[in-house]
């Protein structure tokens, strides 16, 4: 009897814990949509999504977030372009070439990268990368390129971690088969094992995109944050996240609601990315 009660009781505890996270996700969803939709209605869906001008304190104000949507996409694309080759090659090295002794230090170092707060990355970008880009490529240094490089570094742990485990989970027979056919170690790894880990690597890209598109503090500090259409890789840009974090502090009325609506658009982006990720993961298994 007593045991039964305890069992039931614990069951409820587990259930509550499990619901807590789901409830918060649902609440966030409700909040975002309840806060965002009235603003979009007032501004007009097309004026909001496709408007090229963001100037909330003008009379009358304009609330177009197309520059920020494009900004987020460009910067994320740049980050993948930089982070993907470095990340995947690192994962190949870690799983197939790395001597045990070095691995003991390399792996924790990569994990540490994931733990560095983004504001620290941002500060590094502001005092090191910005002057560097400005000196080498010209311009003022606050640019799409700078933000892409910084984000590319920031998504490395995600890409390396997932790709490495994908490569490690490829059955040994692929590698052995290639060796048996006379391939060298390098050829076997690059042309037999790596292609077999394809879907895992795709999953790492998707998760990297998710991380890059949601990154805020680091990007604010290096991207220049101009709310106008992107016009060059060495010119600045404002992302969706930057738009929210920069103006939320003082925003009131429709301006504030428009920022919540910006968050909603970002949320839809993330939902989409996570959807793609779970499809890929299912295929992987």
């Amino acid at each position: 009897m007593k045991k039964n009660f305890l069992e039931k009781f614990m069951e409820i505890i587990f259930f509550i814990s499990a619901s807590a996270s789901i409830i918060s996700v649902v609440l966030i969803c409700v909040f975002m949509f309840a806060g965002g939709i009235p603003a979009i209605k007032e501004i007009g869906l097309f004026d909001f999504l496709l408007g090229k001008k963001w100037s909330p304190s003008n009379v009358p104000p304009s609330f177009g977030i197309l520059p920020m949507i494009l900004g987020s996409i460009y910067v994320t694309f740049g980050a993948i372009l930089i982070g993907l080759p470095i990340g995947v090659l690192t994962a190949v090295f870690l799983s197939k070439f790395c001597p045990r002794k070095i691995y003991r230090y390399l792996k924790p170092a990569v994990n540490l990268m994931a733990g560095i707060p983004s504001i620290v990355y941002g500060f590094f970008g502001m005092v090191v990368l910005v002057p560097f880009i400005s000196n080498v490529f010209g311009g003022n240094g606050n640019s799409i390129l700078t933000a892409s490089i910084l984000l590319g570094i920031m998504i490395l742990p995600t890409i390396i971690g997932l790709s490495e485990s994908a490569i490690r989970s490829v059955p040994k027979s692929y590698y052995e088969g290639a060796i048996a056919l006379g391939a060298s170690h390098e050829t076997a790894v690059m042309f037999a094992v790596l292609p077999a880990a394809k879907s895992g690597i795709f999953a790492s890209i998707v998760l990297g995109i998710g991380r890059a598109i949601g990154e805020t503090m680091a990007v604010v500090m290096v991207a220049g944050n101009q709310a106008r259409m992107p016009n060059g890789i060495l010119r600045g840009i404002r992302t969706l996240t930057a738009n929210i974090v920069m103006e939320m502090g003082y925003a009131a009325d429709l301006h504030r609601e428009a920022l919540i609506a910006t968050g909603m658009i970002l949320f839809i982006f993330i939902l989409f990315i996570n959807g793609v990720f779970s499809i890929l993961k299912r295929r992987m298994n």
Binding site: S55, S57, V127, S134, V220, Q226, R228, M246
Partner: peptide, 24 residues
């Protein structure tokens, strides 16, 4: 109309403006 230059870099804090101007 707020005619602030389109290419102006925008920061949301006094300290960031200070760091940016000191560094450029």
């Amino acid at each position: 109309v707020d005619r602030t230059y389109e290419e102006a870099i925008v920061y949301n804090g006094t300290n960031q403006v200070l760091t940016a101007v000191a560094g450029n």
